[in-house]
């Protein structure tokens, strides 16, 4: 994983830029994208309750890492989508998926000592993918770049809102 701040800011930037062109992407929908950008890192629940502890409590194999794969995320998105009213489901699912996709893309670019990523695409394939190894999750620049882009996207949104208000008052 890249750091979580980079993930949620990247999702914010994508949603905020799309919202400039599409009124259906409201601030709440931008939040949905950020939640999507966070979902694949829910396997960090393992830092609170270790997989091995769950395994011995339940007596069956168990791995939180399933949440960091396309299979686990797809089911989690289904559950998230069910939590909103039917007329918002398609939009919410789209924005959640946008955040998830940006998350997997950023993580695919990470450096792994073995040269293979985690098996993100499970259960489609259980193989680790040969990745480009561009950066470490502890690198500082990704969050700095993401924060700069987020600030610009935020300013662009605020400017558009103001321009919108001015033209509204003219009508």
């Amino acid at each position: 994983m890249a750091d979580l701040l980079t993930h949620v800011l990247t999702a914010y930037v994508l949603a905020a830029l799309l919202s400039l062109r599409d009124d259906r992407i409201t601030p709440a929908m931008t939040t949905a994208a950020m939640v999507g950008g966070l979902v694949p890192d829910l396997n960090r629940l393992g830092l609170v309750v270790q997989s091995s502890a769950v395994e011995s409590a339940l007596g069956v194999p168990f791995s939180w890492d399933a949440l960091g794969t396309v299979g686990g995320v797809a089911v989690a998105l289904g559950l998230g989508t069910l939590a909103v009213p039917p007329r918002l489901r398609r939009r919410t699912a789209t924005l959640l998926a946008l955040g998830v996709l940006s998350h997997f893309l950023l993580d695919y670019l990470l450096f792994f000592p073995s040269g293979h990523t985690h098996p993100y695409l499970w259960p489609l394939t259980a193989a680790g993918l040969p990745g480009p190894g561009l950066y470490l999750s502890s690198a500082r620049w990704p969050a700095a770049v993401a924060a700069t882009c987020a600030a610009l996207a935020w300013l662009a949104n605020r400017r558009q809102k103001r321009v919108g208000r001015v033209s509204d008052s003219r009508n």
Partner: peptide, 14 residues
């Protein structure tokens, strides 16, 4: 979906 999620968590553990 919840059952499916639990199933994935277990199968991934194998």
């Amino acid at each position: 979906l919840l059952l499916g999620l639990v199933a994935l968590l277990v199968v991934h553990g194998t």
